[in-house]
Simulated scan of single mutants.
Amino acid sequence: MLIVRPIEKKDFSALQTIAEQSGIGFTSLPQNDDLLRAKIHRSVNSFAADTDQPGDQGYLFVAEDTTTGEVVGTAGIEASVGLSDAFYHYRLGSVVHSSPELGIHKTVKTLSLCNDYTGAAELCTLFLKTSHRIGGNGRLLAKSRFLFMASHPERFGETVIAEMRGVSDEEGRSPFWQWLQEHFFDLDFPTADYLTGIGEKRFIAELMPKYPIYVNLLSAQAQDVIGQVHPATEPAIAMLKKEGFRFKDYVDIFDAGPTVECPLDQIETVRQSQSVIIRIGELAATPVDYLLANTQLSNYRAGLVRAHLHDGELYLDAEQASILGLSDGDAARCVAIPSSQ
């Protein structure tokens, strides 16, 4: 059985491996041992924090195969971005050049550097090893965060965003960044991406153009990738769109990948989930697939189970309940998983 749980100090080696496999463009997991240890330390402290409002917390989860004990994936949530470091995006807009006398009216798209998402919660660090991209594992890893947020909404910003990886080639070259590099920077994309991942963001403010960039001045290759996702990211953005996330014209400042957003209380899994009381007992003749999680913090566990729901009580077998840290009579949160998903 695959479960999702908070990361622990013992998971450092597994996180190293995941950081190596995730590759260039996966900013939230830099290949830097000190920073990976710091991420684990920050996450442990975040889960242990006694708070009723979003702050500078970062929650990092891992997916563990309970049969082998192998950690096979990660998923993260930032409680509220931009509080300790500036959080940059480009906002797509437009300007109108008009002269009635000459009969000219032209609308030009622009990119403006902004910090508009300051205070939003962010979904991040979603990665699953290729060996386990089967069945409902990816869905479990992604959606388990929503059950955690549904149980503890006071710990997160009211708007939830996700930065989607933009277009780059196998060597990590981004057409969008290549244009910026040529005109404003002397850094290649992998270096800029790495510096951001380790928290060295000052160069952004120092070197990024302060005035809007006219999109039609970019190379054709750079224009073509604005708001487009990396092929490997297409399943992730498709899942988020089903959850109600929408693109509102904000893109990443390095690869121009889209950022999508949704109010926390409007995320489909959050809206459809419900609080239940656990009952250990005989299953109905036709049990249903549920994503089930306990409501704890440091001992949070989530997994896919076969169970049946009746009058606010969820019946499941003792083995499944034990793996998820649940006993008869405990409170939990679940959401039905349609077979078509």
Rank of each mutant, 00 (worst) to 15 (best):
L240G: 07
A222F: 07
R279K: 09
A38V: 00
A192Y: 13
T118H: 15
D34L: 13
V276D: 13
A336S: 14
L15K: 03
H97M: 08
P30F: 07
S340A: 05
K143M: 11
T27S: 06
Y250G: 07
V335N: 07
R91H: 10
L141G: 12
G136H: 14
D116E: 15
E200K: 02
P30M: 01
I226Q: 00
E70H: 07
L123T: 08
K210V: 09
A307Y: 10
D265I: 10
T295E: 13
W179S: 14
V72A: 09
Y315M: 14
V276P: 11
G325K: 02
S298I: 11
P209L: 07
E101H: 09
K241Y: 08
A48G: 05
M239L: 13
T107E: 10
Y290V: 08
R165G: 01
V44Y: 02
A336W: 11
D328P: 08
G55P: 04
A318E: 15
A331R: 15
G82T: 01
P54K: 03
P258E: 05
F203E: 04
K143N: 12
A318H: 13
S322G: 11
E70V: 05
E206V: 08
P153G: 06
G303M: 04
I337H: 08
G119N: 10
R246A: 06
V270K: 04
Q31N: 12
I267K: 00
I237S: 02
S275M: 12
T125S: 13
V251D: 10
G119H: 08
D85V: 02
E313G: 04
Q221K: 07
G329E: 05
A38H: 00
A48Q: 02
A285R: 09
Y250E: 09
S273T: 05
D65S: 00
G303W: 02
E122Q: 13
F245N: 01
L304K: 15
Y300H: 14
A120M: 08
T191G: 10
Y315K: 14
R91M: 02
T295L: 12
D169T: 00
E163A: 00
Q341P: 00
I198Q: 11
T110G: 04
I237E: 10
I24E: 14
R333S: 07
T233D: 03
G281A: 04
E158Q: 15
V160Q: 03
T66Q: 03
R165W: 02
I18E: 02
L316M: 11
A192I: 06
D11K: 07
D33I: 08
S168E: 13
S168M: 15
Y117E: 13
S13M: 06
L128N: 09
S46T: 05
S98K: 14
D265S: 08
P258A: 01
M164Y: 02
F189V: 10
G172P: 09
K241A: 05
E200T: 04
N32G: 00
Y59I: 06
A307M: 12
T17W: 01
P258Q: 01
T67A: 14
T110E: 01
E261F: 07
K39Q: 10
L187G: 11
L141C: 14
N115V: 14
Q181F: 11
A332M: 03
P231M: 00
Q31M: 12
K39W: 08
I24R: 14
L123E: 11
G197C: 05
R165I: 02
A142L: 13
Q31T: 11
T286D: 12
L291I: 14
L15E: 05
P54F: 04
Q21Y: 03
Q221F: 06
E64L: 06
R173E: 14
I77V: 09
N294L: 05
F245W: 03
V95Q: 15
